[in-house]
């Protein structure tokens, strides 16, 4: 089976968040970038497991500039067979989804995986857009997936529990915690990754009318108010009278 895994580049969770250019652009200067954790830990690793038990090929795809190549090399080191980079700025979810769908139409995949959301824009959109562009079912927030002979049983996380679904390939899935366990690339994987193909392809046209007018940081919380551990009535009073939430 052939699986396409969509991978994003995001600032590391611990990276400072600040903006430049009239607060219109995230400041990438001096930041550490990583593969979006949901893409790497759950989507890519589950794709590798499926390949290992069913055969086939795992392709990873990213939309972005050449500075994203280390992210793709890491994906190859984890075990993907080849990498595709669509050479363009990833302006918004629709643009990214259109690139992925265009590549998928030309190449035919049994499954397309992405992470449940990216940790920078938290939009959770690319998977459902790709599914609609390809007219395929989409299973969001998958926390378990079993596969036999073209049929999958998938757990979808819903409010307060799970839904168990049965469907046939092809389909699109977004990966949540539980789908797989993180894998650390080993030295052999890292060496082999250097010889695996990383193809750069041009973008297709796809536009939107969206613009970010500005970013802003949340208002300072002010310092914490400490309460005497022996006076919990005081804490309850503060929550009632000052915070007014009970």
């Amino acid at each position: 089976m052939n699986i396409l895994v969509c991978v994003s580049k995001t600032p590391d969770t611990t990276a400072k968040v600040d903006f430049i250019g009239d607060a219109k652009k995230y400041n990438e200067e001096g930041k550490q970038f990583i593969m979006n954790p949901y893409d790497e830990w759950y989507a890519l690793v589950r794709a590798m497991e499926l390949k290992e038990s069913n055969g086939g090929e795992v392709t990873i795809i990213n939309v972005g500039p050449a500075s994203n190549d280390p992210i793709l090399r890491k994906g190859l080191a984890i075990g993907a067979d080849k990498a595709i980079r669509v050479d363009a700025e990833d302006t918004d979810a629709f643009f990214v989804a259109s690139q992925i769908a265009a590549y998928a139409v030309d190449n035919g995949f049994d499954l397309i995986f992405c992470g449940k959301e990216t940790i920078d824009y938290n939009g959770s959109l690319v998977g459902s857009m790709v599914a609609e562009l390809l007219n395929q079912p989409f299973i969001s927030y998958a926390s378990k997936m079993e596969y036999t002979d073209g049929t999958a049983i998938v757990n979808r996380d819903i409010e307060g529990g799970i839904e168990v679904l049965k469907l046939k390939t092809p389909f699109v899935l977004s990966a949540a915690k539980g789908l797989a366990e993180q894998r650390i690339p080993n030295m052999r994987g890292i060496m082999m990754a250097k010889r695996k193909p990383l193809d750069v392809i041009p973008a297709v046209d796809a536009g939107s009318g969206l613009s970010i007018e500005k970013f802003e940081l949340p208002a300072d919380k002010g310092s914490v108010k400490m309460v005497d551990p022996n006076d919990m009535d005081e804490l309850v009073r503060l929550l009632h009278e000052e915070a007014k939430i009970i």
């Binding site: 938290n122 009318g209 613009s211 007018e213 940081l217």
Partner: peptide, 17 residues
């Protein structure tokens, strides 16, 4: 208005569509 970077900032969007 959309929280971004896991709530560490907010982005103000508009659309011409």
């Amino acid at each position: 208005i959309k929280p971004v970077f896991s709530g560490k900032a907010f982005a103000h969007y508009s659309s011409s569509a």
